[in-house]
Design a protein around this nucleic acid. Structure first.
Lengths: 210, 210, 210, 210
DNA sequence: CATTAAGCGAGACGGTACGTCCCGTCTTGTG
DNA sequence: CACAAGACGGGACGTACCGTCTCGCTTAATG
């Protein structure tokens, strides 16, 4: 198997118990879903996973990091099950339709509590802990955002988007509003809403000069 | 602006110590700025304010609420000092310019640590505690967002914005991206960036059909 | 009531909970008797007493000190119940008989597990922790030893003991052997044994020169 | 004196590493001397000895047993270096002088921290752990006590001690006081003190009838 | 204008979780 | 197969705060 993720923790080892790691991931995700992030404790995770606390402290510096890895692992698993397709936004030639499709899928995902609970918890922790926040962005958000950049660049080549537009900024016009509504409860989210965002973003608020 | 004090907890009383309330606000804001929100404790606030713990528990249900009120109070004070002007977005007839101006002011504010630290802390708490999140939105965000709605409606009447556009959604095209970059460290924020957001939002990403 | 024992601990307070103190004493003595000193934990005492751990740590520096006070308190209670008589060794004019009587009572006490278990535990801790050891001697042993000194001095005045003998050393001839047999399992203890000790000590091992 | 190695745990083996055993003894004794018995841990001994923990657990059932063997080994070494003389109390015909001499040597030994620290630690453990206590007595004390028994019996035959005296009890008159003062800090120990003990024990506290 | 009841500071209390230290067992190469 | 290395499940440590609960004391409103 490729890519031994690891990285930050420390002690290093091939003798690490795969069994424990999995149990800890499962316990962490289950607890966050059941009792919420703040009431999820390392002690609770350890107890539920049938693991000594030290086994958690040995490999992760904080419960946020445990949850981050658990969530990443969840994503990898889900991706593997689904087959590795769709690491790309479809390009049917109709940018608006393609974006609306992806955003609708995102809406579905945001409403799935399996993803929503840990994701929101990590985002919250990231607001207040800059290092974790940057890790969250890099590991959980950037990969997806990059897909939008790619699709927008293709659209530019196809003449569907003005060439002087910076795709990294452009994508925020429809991604950020959705993110904010979801994270901060500033409004309801729906297919209609995201469709509208795409339309507004592509054609602007100002009247078309003709 | 009206009195707004007390609110939910309310054991009732005019005998409440104004002195203590102020001291608690000051201590809470200072601690959040100095050691960060998670390491700010009610015990710490009480000690720093020279106040018994019970005096805090008597009037607020949680440290988040203490900080919320402290922050609102800070805003009121700041507003009072600055004179109450500018509870409205200027209307010079040039929508783009007006929006860019307000967003530039917002950028400045987001970079002022006096506002940034508690604001970010409250936002974080709000992600994970829905009730507080909604309170945060209602008390801290809605008033400002409403100003954008008003300005956009005026622009619609002036023909600067298409009449079928929903202003509540429209404003998110430039407000949410800024909010997300600031909250989640997804990118740097600058005048140039917010100017670009306004341009993209008003004129769209797609080429003007002519 | 005189002599508020207190002393070392620290925070001071009249608001201290008498109820908790008693419960802690009872729990400590019960646990030492039931599971032995090394398996008695502060956590266990707190749980059994229905008390927070901090309530123990607030008033005592170690489990040894808890047990010491609990044991002293037990002694005081026992003394009070028994009426305060006998804080003195009887003086019937027959030194040998008087000493044998007291030592027989001591043998009984050493075989009473209520006293023996904590006493042995404290002695053990005292061996390895000099400060506690000295406290043990001063609080638990010296008062009793002084009674022997007094009786021996009276015997000197009565001509039953040579005037040049140092009573503080003399008493060790019969007290220390008993203590050592009990503490270190170097031999069985019985009335016959202590009687013999007194005889040997008073008349010496060497033949009487006549 | 013979080889004496292994003993009760015995997984069997001639392949046992002599090197490790020595290193463990040294580490155990050093740690007890440096940080005290309670803060000496098996993990610490293993680390200091450059040995795996399992190597300790394989051969000894507890840290007390490790220390016991280490200490016995130390004694054997010391004896070997000193030449094997003096496994007996001298008999010059003057019992008092002979006993005083041996006790003075004992005083010296009790003041040598190389012996005192582990010896005291083992004694303490023995108070609370009866099995170990009996082992301590059998291995560390009985051999020496037997020497006194032998010398006293010789004295009885020479008419220096009354024939009806039980030597096993008699020796306690001067040995136990010294032991108690040393173990429990009940008083200072010195040549003068032990000389006095011998005099009191031999001639008794009561006046000589003439 | 005294009385009195609330708010107040202080901080002890029963708890929960923290992050650490060791325990004694186990697993994984190495010589 | 004993060994070093050290991960593992577990238990207890001593600490930090939680939110509740008295204690006097101050202080404002009322009878």
């Amino acid at each position: 198997m490729a890519a031994q993720k690891s990285a930050q923790p420390a002690p290093s080892s091939a003798r690490r118990s795969e069994r424990s790691r999995r149990a800890i991931y499962d316990a962490a995700l289950a607890l966050v879903a059941e009792v919420g992030y703040p009431r999820t404790t390392i002690e609770g995770i350890a107890a539920r996973a049938g693991v000594g606390k030290q086994t958690i402290y040995r490999w992760w510096p904080s419960k946020a990091e445990v949850l981050m890895e658990a969530f990443l692992d969840l994503g990898e698993q889900a991706a593997q099950e689904a087959g590795q397709e769709s690491y790309v936004i479809p390009d049917t030639g109709d940018l608006a339709a393609d974006l609306k499709g992806v955003l609708r899928a995102t809406v579905d995902q945001l409403k799935d509590p399996r993803f929503a609970a840990p994701s929101r918890a990590l985002a919250a922790e990231g607001l207040v802990n800059e290092e974790l926040g940057r890790e969250y962005v890099a590991k959980l958000m950037e990969p997806s955002l990059q897909l939008y950049v790619d699709r927008l660049r293709a659209a530019q080549e196809a003449g569907e988007v003005r060439p002087d537009v910076d795709p990294r900024i452009a994508l925020e016009l429809f991604v950020s509003p959705l993110a904010q509504r979801w994270l901060q409860y500033t409004g309801p989210i729906s297919y209609e809403y995201t469709d509208t965002l795409v339309d507004y973003a592509l054609h602007g608020l100002a009247p078309r000069t003709r």
